[in-house]
Design a protein around this nucleic acid. Structure first.
Lengths: 344, 344
DNA sequence: TTGTAGGCGTTATCAG
DNA sequence: CTGATAACGCCTACAA
C-alpha cells in the first residue's frame, strides 16, 4: 500500500532540499530549468498532490465553504446547494455540507466543527429548533471570530450578516391574489406554527391579500400545522366538509396533501377548489393535477449566497463592515391546479 | 474582530508554556490542579476550540468521511446521505458531501481534492459518465494510497473494494412478478440505456421474471431511455396506443411519467394498466394513485456503508485485505397502482 | 541556483 | 510539575 507522497519524499529521492522541490514545482525561475524538469517529471510520475491540510494550516484558509441546512432530504435545500456548488467550483472553492436535522444541538456541533478549521465561511439556513429557542450564540461566536456567515431562507433577523431571502410575504400575497383573481372567495391557508419565520411571513402575505380584497380574516380558514410528519390527518380533519373554494399552502407537502385529501372526497381540483402551493419541487410538477406554486428559485439563492460569501472572503479590507440583504424574486408558476374552467 | 484563539495565546496570557496549556486542557495529572483550573477557566472564557486542521495534520487523519454522489438533488441519494451522517455522527466522524453532477471530470476533481487531506475514506456512487468511460484511475489511485473506498448503488464490478448494493435484478424480478401475479400479461419496461449498471440489472430481472412465466421477450415492450430530462416525450410516444396491461419502470420518474401519460389518455390505473416503479421516494408516495414500488432502503445503505468504512478506518492491522459486498434487501411497497379491482 | 530556518497549531517525548 | 523540542507537510524570506 503505497504511501501518500510528500515534498520530503521527492527531495530525498532526488537528493535536493525540500524547498528546491517546492519551488521547482511552482516553476520558480530561481531554480534551474534542469532541476525543475527533473522534479516535475518525478512528481508527475508519483502523482504528487500537495496536502490540503498542510496548505490550510499554512495559509490559514481552507478554500472551502461550509453549508449548514436543516434537512438534506429536501428538494429546496438541495437545489440551493446545487447553486452554491456551481459558483464555488467556478471560483476554486470546495463545499462541505452538513445537515442539522432541525436539531439545535447538531447545528451547534456542526458549526463549531466546521468553524474550527474546516471552512472559511458559512452559508446557512437555521434549524427549526434554533428558531424556537432563539439561541444564536454559536452563529455570533463564529462571526465574531471573523468568519463570514451568509444566511438564506430561514434567517435570523436579529443577526447582523449577509442574507439571501425571498420576500415570503409578497410571494404569498401573489399566490393568494392569484386565487382571488380567478374568483375564489373562501380561501383556506395551510401554514406552519408561528415560530417558523417563513411560515409566519407567508401567512401575513395571505392576510394582506385578503385585506386588499376586503375579505375579513376568518380563523376558521387558517390551519397552523405543528407536526409536519403527520400533516395528512390534520389537513384532512381541517378540510372535511369545509366550505371553501381555494387553498393556499405554505409548502409543497401541504399543497399536495390538500389536493389528495380533497380528491378523495370527490372534490374536483381545480373546478371546485383551486390550490396554490409554495416551493417549486418535483411533487408540484408531477402531481395530477400539476400544482400552481410559488417558485423560490433555490438555485439562484445558492448562487447568490456563494457569490456573496466568496466576495467577503476575498475582500482584503476586513474593516468595511457592510452587510447586504438580497431579495430574490419569487415567481408564480401557473399549472393545472388553478386553471378553472367553470363559469365564474 | 476577535481572532481565533490558540494555545499560544493562552500560554502567553497566563505566562506558561504552550505544552503546559495543552496538557492542562487534557486534564493531565502532570499538571498541578491549580494550573489546570486556571487554564481551563481561561480557555472556556475565551471559548477556545482546538484547530482541527492542525490536529488533522498532526494525527494524519481527519475524522471525516468523504461522500461523492452523482446528484445532490435526488431523493434516493440524500436518503443514503442521511444514513451515512447518522452513523458518522454517532462515531464522531464528520461528513463531506460532494456531487459529481454525473460528470467524470468533476468526480475526479472532487475525489482528488478530498483525497489530498480532507477525508480519511470514501463512500461513493459513480457518475454516469464514469460508468460510460470505464475510467477508474482516480478511484484506484485513491485506494492505492491507502484510503478505503466503499461503493454503493452504482458500483464498479472491476474494482476491488467494499460494496453496498441491492440485488437490482432480484428487486426488478419481484416487481415484475407482482405484476404477473395480479394478472398482467403484457408488461412494458421503461429502463435506461445499458451502460447504467442498475438499469441493465433491473432489465435483466424483468426478463427473468417473464421467462419464469413463459412469456417471451418482446422488444416492442422495452424502452431504453437515454435522455432522462426529456423522458416524458419518449415515454408518451412509446406508450401511445400500445396494447399493454402493466408497466415496470426502473425509477421513480419514469413510473410517474408513465402514470401521467396513461392517465391523460384516459387509461385507468390500476384497472387498465398496473404500474410498479423502483425507488421509494416522495413522488411514489404522494402521487394519485400512489405507486407500488421497490424500496431500496437508502438510509440503511448509508448506514451500512458508513459502518463499513469506519470499521476499516479504525482497524489497526492494515494488512488484512478483506473486502465485503453487502446486499441490502429490497422490499416491495404495495400501493394503489397495482390494486386491481377488475375481474381477472 | 540551492539550501536553511521558521512558522501555521497541536501533541508527544523527554529534559529540567 | 513545567517547559523545550521536534514533528505533521508546506511555503517563503533570507542566507549561502
Amino acid at each position: 500500500m503505497r504511501q501518500k507522497i510528500t515534498l520530503k519524499h521527492i527531495a530525498k529521492e532526488l537528493d535536493v532540499s525540500v524547498s528546491t522541490v517546492s519551488k521547482a514545482l511552482k516553476d520558480s525561475i530561481e531554480i534551474s530549468l534542469d532541476t525543475r524538469q527533473k522534479v516535475k517529471a518525478f512528481a508527475k510520475l508519483y502523482n504528487y498532490k500537495p496536502n490540503n491540510i498542510a496548505l490550510s494550516l499554512k495559509n490559514r484558509k481552507t478554500k472551502t465553504l461550509g453549508v449548514i441546512i436543516p434537512e438534506i432530504v429536501h428538494h429546496f435545500f438541495t437545489t440551493v446547494i446545487g447553486g452554491v456548488e456551481k459558483v464555488a467550483n467556478e471560483k476554486g472553492y470546495n463545499v462541505i455540507i452538513c445537515s442539522s436535522n432541525n436539531s439545535f444541538d447538531k447545528e451547534v456541533i456542526n458549526m463549531e466543527m466546521l468553524a474550527s478549521g474546516s471552512a472559511d465561511g458559512f452559508i446557512m439556513s437555521v434549524a427549526k429548533e434554533t428558531q424556537q429557542k432563539k439561541d444564536y450564540h454559536h452563529i455570533q461566536e463564529t462571526m465574531s471570530q471573523g468568519m463570514p456567515v451568509v444566511m438564506f431562507d430561514r434567517i435570523i433577523d436579529e443577526l447582523v450578516c449577509d442574507k439571501i431571502i425571498i420576500d415570503d410575504a409578497k410571494g404569498a400575497q401573489t399566490a393568494t391574489n392569484h386565487l382571488l383573481s380567478i374568483g375564489c372567495k373562501k380561501i383556506a391557508i395551510l401554514t406552519t406554527v408561528d415560530y417558523i419565520s417563513v411560515g409566519k411571513l407567508r401567512t401575513n402575505g395571505y392576510l394582506r391579500a385578503l385585506m386588499a380584497y376586503d375579505i375579513p380574516q376568518n380563523d376558521e380558514y387558517i390551519l397552523k400545522i405543528e407536526d409536519v410528519d403527520n400533516c395528512e390527518k390534520e389537513i384532512s380533519d381541517f378540510l372535511k366538509n369545509k366550505d371553501i373554494d381555494g387553498v393556499f399552502a405554505v409548502n409543497e407537502l401541504f399543497a399536495v396533501t390538500a389536493a389528495k385529501v380533497l380528491s378523495k372526497e370527490g372534490i374536483n381540483i381545480p373546478n371546485d377548489v383551486s390550490i396554490v402551493g409554495f416551493t417549486d419541487g418535483i411533487l408540484s410538477k408531477h402531481f395530477i393535477p400539476s400544482l400552481t406554486t410559488v417558485s423560490q428559485h433555490g438555485e439562484e439563492m445558492g448562487e447568490r449566497a456563494a457569490k456573496l460569501l466568496i466576495e467577503k472572503l476575498e475582500s482584503e479590507d476586513t474593516t468595511t463592515e457592510e452587510y447586504r440583504t438580497v431579495i430574490i424574486d419569487t415567481s408564480l408558476v401557473e399549472r393545472e391546479s388553478t386553471k378553472k374552467t367553470r363559469k365564474k
